[in-house]
Amino acid sequence: MDSEHQCQCAQQNEEELYPKLEEMIEQHKGRPTELIMALHKAQNLFGYLPKKAQEIISERLNVPISTICGVITFYSFFSTVPKGRHSIKVCLGTACYVRGGQQTLERVEKELNTKVGGTTEDRRFSVDVVRCIGACGLAPAMLVDNDVYGRVKSTKIMDILKKYE
């Protein structure tokens, strides 16, 4: 019941952002070459690219929806999945990989019941993979928001994540 209530709130908030989106993309109206700029703005606003935002951008910039979907799926920066309040990035660079990064990732996926690129149902965490964050000496490493965690043991993961609400 609680989670359902929360979810609706989130959606309501999202609805309120659309007039803002219209305002932000006004300058790109009828300019198909400015698609990526408009998508960036929309993603910053919503945290991801909801289908409705894609449709609005298609209509305003006069870009076919198929082209927009093509661009969004091409660039890994764009996401069509809502992002969580906190982002988990598990490093799978060479050093982290050899020292168990994969197991860390699997544990995170299992504990949060979500896959790479996904977001937990309560929108608390999104899970992603990065290739080397320059903390090879601490391998296997993991980022939660801007905090770096080194020598992550899979048994310690839940203790780390507890800190983020």
Binding site: P64, I65, T67, C69, G70, T73, F74
Partner: peptide, 24 residues
Amino acid sequence: EEIQTVNALALSKRGSETVITDAF
């Protein structure tokens, strides 16, 4: 796209995952 200007099909994703498909 060019002859019919319908734009139903486009490339999606990248690399070995690339497919030609409709919008969503």
